[in-house]
Design a protein around this nucleic acid. Sequence first.
RNA 1: GUGGUUUUAGCUCAGUUGGUUAGAGCGCCUGAUUGUGGUUCAGGAGGUCGUGGGUUCGAGCCCCAUAUUCCACCCCA
Length: 463
Amino acid sequence: MAQIKPSLAKGTRDFSPLEMERRNYIFNTIKDVFRKYGYQEIQTPSFENLQTLTGKYGEEGDKLIFKILNSGDFISKISAEKFATLHSNSITPLIAEKALRYDLTVPFARYVVMHQNEITLPFKRFQIQPVWRADRPQRGRYREFYQCDADVVGSESLLNEAEFILVYQEALSSLGLKDFVIKLNNRKLLAGIADIIGKPELLIDMTVAIDKLDKIGLVGVKQELAAKGFSTEELAMLDPIITLSGSNVDKLATLKEVLKSSEMGQKGIEEIEMVLAYAQKLDANALPYIEVDITLARGLNYYTGSIFEVKTNEVSMGSIGGGGRYDDLTGMFGLPGLTGVGISFGADRIYDVLLELDLFPESTTKTTQVLVTNFDQSTEDYALSLLQTLRKNGIASELYPVAAKLKKQLTYADQKKIPYVIFIGAEELSSGMLTIKKMITGEQEKMAADDLFSYLINTADPN
RNA sequence: GUGGUUUUAGCUCAGUUGGUUAGAGCGCCUGAUUGUGGUUCAGGAGGUCGUGGGUUCGAGCCCCAUAUUCCACCCCA
């Protein structure tokens, strides 16, 4: 067989022991907070029926779904006439029936519908699994990455939203992040803005343009909006929205005034106020992290109410979390009238941020505690029983698997940071006194096997 | 998907206008030490220069294609 140069698929990574330890640190921290707020873990398959996923993420999102080619001779199942009329888009459902999951929310909606008789509402679940996107990789953007999602379905209370803000605040603070902002917006408020300008189709263009205020300034924003088709009068009407600033309370007061003719807009403002009120009652310390931001649109099609996004100000990185409320995601799977709201942590981005800020705790992984040396066949037999006795006493131990030079065995212990090495050679065998070497100090002493056990049980770290 | 960028030893990187045998540091292996690691000293191995074409007497260097990395859009975690 021809040799193949080893390489990773674009946008994927291996995780070595140290990286896994750090990744698990992130996962465990987030999990602990999820559990504390009453969420239970589930998992769903890596791939779903393509139908389950398509049409949920918008046009751009659909393009980024990794499709799985059907098995077998799928071409022969398409008639020649039909084949001639096909283009790459319309052929996809014919040759790919499955696809890798794009996020955890849609599979969760599917799960809820399929398990509706087993679950009691409100159902609070969390899920930590990889998702895949056929995007072009970049800093903080991978084609395979882990999301940590918490969602609750069957409760329209805005307390859920407020609790999610606290989950964000608590988890990120536990991870050592200090300067981050949880952005809060509401689709109803955006709809209200669309109401008053009477051009709902330009809503997206508008939020995108307003979002650039820092970069291109008020004049630039207005130019861009004019280019998109806004009249001078409309721009005047939008002025207070474009220049919206100040505290959350200030912003909401301005919006209330501007959107007073829009029922939908008022509803959006009320919802934001309610979320903030709940958050304050739960923990007023969380309030400074919350920023009402009307430019937060979020592409995901299914959001209908609150929208969240989390960014850190400590390093340059896209959002490290996002979420929102979806009123009818399960409706697409035949269970209408069930509202849900959820958030997601981008574990891989959080990893990159923590690494850059040097916020990972010192390695705490328990490695092997004792290495038993291997001199030759006769000593190996004795060493084997000693080895297993150590293990039965809960001490992580290993025997060097072949009789090698002591130098080599010690180098191995050194590199693996094994704190104790037990020498069993001819000398030890005949005297019955084993030599134990403490690698950190280099000192060594002789003791009988029984004394050695009690010594190690008392001093070595169990695993 | 659009535009740009990167790729040379296990790792991080030098490499002149296109000119003999492509270098360094770290790491690795061997020895100084046949029962002693982390320090030191001596020696050694390791490269189809991302891949495939092309130009040239001659290509790591120039041209084309392709993969990959990172960056800016788009979008997103």
